Structure formats: C-alpha cells, structure tokens
Amino acid sequence: MFDGVDPDRVTVAVSGGVADVRLARPDKRNALDPAMFSSLVHAAEGLRTLSGVRAVVLSGDGPDFCAGLDFTAFAAMRSGERMSSQVSLPPADGPAKATGQRAAFTWAQVPVPVIAAIRGNALGGGLQIALGADIRIVAPDASMGVLEVRWGLIPDMTGSQLLPELVGRDVAKDLALTGRRISGEEAVRIGLATRTAEDPLAAALEMAREIAGHNPFAVRAAKRLLDGAGRQDLETGFAAEQDEIGALIGSPNQVEAVTARFEKRDPVFVDP
C-alpha cells in the first residue's frame, strides 16, 4: 500500500476507517531487522496522511507481538556495528531522529488513535514500539520486558523517556535495571498496559471500530490535547483546550453528531 513497506515485514489493510497493521515475520517472532524497521516507519508515515483512516490497530502475526531485535544485530554489535546504519529513511520531522526511535515514536505521531494488540512476547524493542501506541490491550499471559540491560545496553527506542510517563520513574528503573519480564496482568496493574483481553486483536479492532464511529475531528483534537497534558504548562494546555472546542462547536461534523443522536441514527461524518 505504501512505498517502502515490505509486505514480508509489515502489512496494512484499511476497512471501515480502521487500519489493521501487522508485523508480518511470525517465523522469527516478528523480530526487528533493517527491513522491519524501515517498513514500520514507512507504514506509519503513510497512515499519517491517508484520508479516511480514523483509528489504527497495531499487532503481530503469529503468537507474538515482537520479540525485539533480531539476534544477528547483537552479533554485529560486538564489532561496534549498529543496525540503524543499514536503514535509509527520509529526514525526520519530529523529536525522534534515530532509526529505532522513529520505528516506535512515529506511531505516536499518527494523528488518529493507535491501539496496540499484544499477545505472546513484547520484549526490548518490541515493547518500545508498543509504547508509541495510545492504548495497549494485552493478553493476560503476555510476556513483556525491557531486556536491553541483559545485553549490556539501554532502551534507546524512546523507552527511556516514554516508559516513566506510564509507570513512574521508580517502576521504570525497576524494569530497565533488572530486565525482568512481567505478565500482561502485571503490565495493567503498573500502568504499562491499558487492559487485558483473552483475544487482544479482536478487542482492539472492536475499540477501533467504535472510535471510527465518532466525529474524526473531535477524536483527533482529543488525542492532541491528551498528548500535551503533562508535557506543557497548564496555561498552554487550557488555551489549547479552548481553541479545540471553539473549532468544534457548530462545525458540520459536530452538528451531524447532535442531529444523528436526536434522530436516533448512525451519524455520517466527513473526514479531515
């Protein structure tokens, strides 16, 4: 669907306003190699401007979400080589500049909600990709962990900055400094995941379809505001809130939302 996306690494299918994005390397537990990094970035970049997309579901084919870096990358590190040197990408337009950072954070830059559906392993870089999502629905027995310290490394795919926002600084240190694995149930308890589901993909698709039924301008505005909360001062945040509500009230989609509720029918919205 998008230039630069290798279908042997990532697939994208759009239906009913929902983009179903899947890491497509199940025989390797969806491990990250140069083609996977490149495909993740190009897929998210393409979705940022694709008309008609109102929500995104990000998951992995097979039993795992993503088990982290391909083992060949660790072997190459012994000679000082970085996998990112093998990936050619267009210039970045946000705070994430390194290839690994972009593969994770570019999902946060998609203007519509991104829901990660996680089962099996979400480890190391795989977990950090999930941090780029707005919502994480996990299987109770999923295995999640910040494993980089076990390889003599640190989480360098935005994890050092985004993880503390979710779980707090002390819990983030617990995870990053021990490299311990946690279950999906514990991930929810500590705030790393949103909720559990026996079938995370089905639950994520159901949520995405529900979101896709709302005013897409309101959904995007809510994501912008909530992403800014805690990252800017209150005066700026309150002013942004008023700017967003001012643009929504009386707009065609907002009028349609009200009219449809009074008429007890499904609304028909215009996409950005």
Rank of each mutant, 00 (worst) to 15 (best):
S84A: 13
V56E: 06
A55W: 09
L69F: 02
A104C: 02
P63D: 04
L131S: 13
R119H: 05
A76V: 01
A98V: 10
L127V: 05
C66H: 08
G60N: 12
G124W: 00
C66I: 10
G120H: 00
N121L: 14
A130F: 01
A98M: 12
L131R: 10
A98Y: 13
Q109E: 15
A117H: 08
G124L: 02
A96P: 06
R78D: 11
V112R: 03
S88H: 14
W107G: 04
S59E: 00
F74L: 07
M83V: 15
V87M: 05
V56A: 06
Q101Y: 02
W107H: 07
L131E: 10
W107A: 05
R102K: 05
A76M: 05
T99C: 14
L50Q: 08
A116V: 13
A76K: 09
T99I: 15
L58H: 03
D61T: 10
I129C: 00
A117F: 06
S84H: 03
S79V: 11
Q128T: 09
A108M: 15
A73G: 08
F71P: 07
F71Q: 12
M83E: 10
V57W: 01
D70Y: 00
A75V: 14
A122M: 03
A55E: 07
I118G: 12
L123F: 06
E81G: 02
A76C: 02
D93K: 06
S84Q: 12
E81L: 09
G126S: 01
T49H: 07
V57K: 03
L131I: 11
V53M: 04
G125C: 01
A96M: 07
E81H: 09
A92M: 11
D93T: 14
Q109R: 09
V112Q: 02
R54L: 04
A116L: 12
L89M: 14
N121K: 13
A98K: 11
L127G: 05
S88P: 05
A108N: 15
Q101S: 09
G125K: 01
Q109D: 08
F71G: 09
R78H: 12
R102E: 06
M77E: 14
T49N: 08
T72W: 09
L50W: 00
R54A: 04
V110C: 13
C66A: 15
T106R: 07
T49W: 02
P113M: 11
Q101D: 12
V57L: 03
L127C: 08
A108S: 15
A116D: 12
